[in-house]
Amino acid sequence: MKTFFYIFFAVFAAFTTSSTGETADQIVNKANLASYYQGNDGRASVSMVITDSQGRERTREFIILRMDVEDGKDQKFYVYFHEPADVRKMVYMVWKHVGKDDDRWLYLPAMDLVNRIAAGDKRSSFAGSNFVYEDVSGRGVEEDIHEVTDTTDKHYKIRNTPKDKQNVEFLYYDVWIDKSNFLPVKAEYYDKQGDKYRTVEALEIETIQGHPTVIKSKVTDLNTGGNTVSNFSGIKYEVGLKDDIFTERYLKRAPRQYLK
């Protein structure tokens, strides 16, 4: 029965073409490449401000390095924390896989300890912010069924419904994708009761080395009233990161030349 619905949705999605003739899947694939796979690699300094419902602020500062193993497929991420003080020098590393569980590591410098983290909790908070792990490394496009629900002059509106409802907290989410550069500019998440509870917005976009890039984004939790704003700076593509940066060696000994 379940399988039948998948096939039904897949066929439905494939035939729901946009005004320019692109299918939902094609649009989503382009958006995925535009937001997570620009260049062969990249680095950025990220400053997050987490504001709770009472207006109290917390900050996170980290450097993120990213390397594509294959465009649209596997990637490696290296996240080095500067702030807050209690997580300083911690490193979070991901080998993202399409179609199977990611490999994830956390390095705790005070104990010289390399820990593995179970892949399951991709929808939990990233570093105590309103972003989830999946917002940082991207959600596998094959995990959702995509339909174009609206097309305007500027945007495609895509509805994304998870194939496996057990592992996510949302019923579906809508994404507005900019037609000119295929960057997702807004996402709205709906909970199992069908109520909107979470938004993600791209607040500022800048073209860096020819790649339109989100340099400021915001997540708002409509249930708690909290939000997180991320500012990206020092963005660089085609850094020339080698595969061995994303190994245990550099978890234990930060590659300083890329973290300045």
């Binding site: 569980d101 490999d103 593995r116 179970a118 892949a119 399951g120």
Partner: peptide, 11 residues
Amino acid sequence: VRGNVFGGIGN
């Protein structure tokens, strides 16, 4: 040895 097993980490 350590790695992903059954959605968790086995060692």
